[in-house]
Nucleic acid binder design. Structure first.
Lengths: 226, 226
DNA sequence: AAACTAGCGATTGTTCAACAATCCCGCAAT
DNA sequence: ATTGCGGGATTGTTGAACAATCGCTAGTTT
C-alpha cells in the first residue's frame, strides 16, 4: 500500500493535540498517582491542584471525572476527591475478576487459532527491561502481557475491562516499596505461558495461569499493610 | 442482631437527597433513553436540554459524562453528544461478554454453595409481570434475573460489568417495536435455569444458558434493521 | 451544470468569577 | 461521653464570556 503511514499517524492521533485540557490534566495526575507521588487516601484539593496546573476548577473537575471512571480516585459528595485506597477485599476481587477474564481468553484462544505476536512482544519487552534493571518498565511490560492475554478473547469489552483492572493493579503496586520483588518473578512465568499457548497446550496453560495468579494474589496480600 | 434495620437504611441511602444535580439529570436522561423516548442517533443539544431541565450547561456536561461512562451516549468532539446506536458487532460483543460473565458465575456457584433467592425472586417478578401483560416489566424482570445470575460470582466487579452490559442491552430493546416477542420466550427459560441451579445440576445449567444466549443473540441480530 | 471555495451562523470547548450548600473542627453545655 | 452550635473552608452549581470548530449556503470557477 502506498499510504501505509496513514494508519501509523492515526494511532498517534490520540497522544497529539487532540488531548483536551482536561485529558492532559488527567494524564499528569494519573502519572503522579501511578508513580506513587500521590499516596492513596490523599485528598486532591480543587483549589490547590488547579492553581498548580494553571487550569480552572471546571477543567480540573472533568479530569477528576476521567480518573474516577478509571477508579484511580473516588469522589465523595461535598467532600472532594481522594486517591483511591485498595484494601484486601479489593485485591481479592481484582484477582477473581482477572481469573474470569484471562481464563476465558485462553479458552477462546483454544477455539479459534489466535495471534500471539502481541503476547511475545510483551515478553520481549519485559526481558529487555529486566536486562537493564528497569523494574518499573518491567512492571509495564507485565501489564502489557496480561493486556495481550485478555485480547485473545477478541472482545472490545473484555479489552476495556482488563485495562480497567490493570489500572487498579498499578494502584496497588504504587504502594509497594520494592517493585523488583513484585515483577521479576513473573518474567519467567510469562515466557512459559506464552510458550504453552504457542505449543497449543491450552489446558496446561490454563493451569499455569491459575497458579500464577494465585501466587501473585497471595504475595500482594501478604505485602499489604492495611 | 438488634440493629438489623441498619443495613436496610444503608441500602436506601443511595436514593436519598445525596444525589447531586448532575446525577439527577443523568437519571432523567437515562430513563428517557431506556424507555425509548430518545431514539438512538438523536443529538442531545446542550442548550435545549439544559433549558428543559433547568440546569446550567456545566452541570449538563457532567451528566453527559456519566452517561458516556455507561455507554448510553457517545461524545463526538465539537459535534455534541448522541444517543448511542448499537450495530451488529456491538450485539455480538455484548453476548460474547455475557457468555464469559454468566458462565463463570454458574461455575462459581458450583464451587461454593450459593444463595438463589434473588434468582427466584426475579423469576417470580417476571411471572407476575407476564400475568398482567406488562411486557416492559417483564423485560426488567429479565434483566434482574441475569443480574442475579451474575451475582453468583460473588464479585463486585462482575456485578458492575453485568449492570453495564444490561444497560446497553436496554439500548437495543428500546429500538424494538414489540417487547413481548423479545422477552416472553425467556420467562420459561429463566424458570428452567433456576430449577437446574437449585437442583445442583450446574453442567446442564451451563449448557442451557449457552443455548439460551445463542438463541437470544440470533433473534436480536435478525430483528436489527441496521 | 457540476464542483469547489469562502464566509456565516450555530454549537461546542474552555475558562472565569461569584454565590449557595455542605462539611469539618473546635467549643460549650448537658 | 454525647449532643448542639457556630465559623471557616471547600465543594456544588450557575451564568456569562470568548475561542474553536462544524455545517450549510451562496457565490465563483471550470
Amino acid at each position: 500500500m502506498v499510504d501505509d503511514w496513514l494508519s501509523a499517524l492515526e494511532s498517534e492521533r490520540a497522544s497529539m493535540g487532540r488531548a483536551s485540557a482536561s485529558e492532559k490534566v488527567a494524564d499528569a495526575l494519573r502519572t503522579r498517582i501511578i508513580e506513587g507521588d500521590l499516596r492513596p487516601r490523599t485528598r486532591l484539593s480543587e483549589e490547590r491542584i488547579g492553581a498548580a496546573l494553571g487550569v480552572s476548577r471546571n477543567t480540573l473537575r472533568e479530569a477528576f471525572h476521567l480518573l474516577g471512571h478509571e477508579r484511580l480516585v473516588v469522589r465523595e459528595f461535598n467532600r472532594g476527591v481522594f486517591v483511591r485506597a485498595l484494601d484486601h477485599d479489593d485485591v481479592r476481587d481484582l484477582y477473581r475478576f482477572r481469573r474470569i477474564l484471562e481464563v476465558s481468553s485462553i479458552r477462546q484462544a483454544a477455539i479459534d487459532g489466535s495471534d500471539l505476536t502481541r503476547l511475545h512482544a510483551a515478553v520481549d519487552e519485559g526481558g529487555a527491561a529486566a536486562a537493564v534493571e528497569d523494574w518499573r518498565g518491567l512492571g509495564s511490560a507485565n501489564m502489557h502481557f496480561h493486556e495481550a492475554l485478555a485480547a485473545l478473547a477478541g472482545s472490545r469489552r473484555v479489552d476495556e475491562a482488563m485495562r480497567q483492572v490493570l489500572a487498579e493493579m498499578r494502584l496497588v503496586f504504587s504502594t509497594m516499596s520494592d517493585p523488583r520483588t513484585f515483577h521479576e518473578p513473573y518474567l519467567e512465568g510469562n515466557r512459559q505461558l506464552a510458550a504453552l499457548l504457542a505449543a497449543g497446550d491450552h489446558d496446561e496453560a490454563e493451569r499455569a495461569l491459575l497458579t500464577y495468579l494465585d501466587r501473585a494474589e497471595a504475595q500482594l496480600l501478604a505485602a499489604m499493610t492495611t
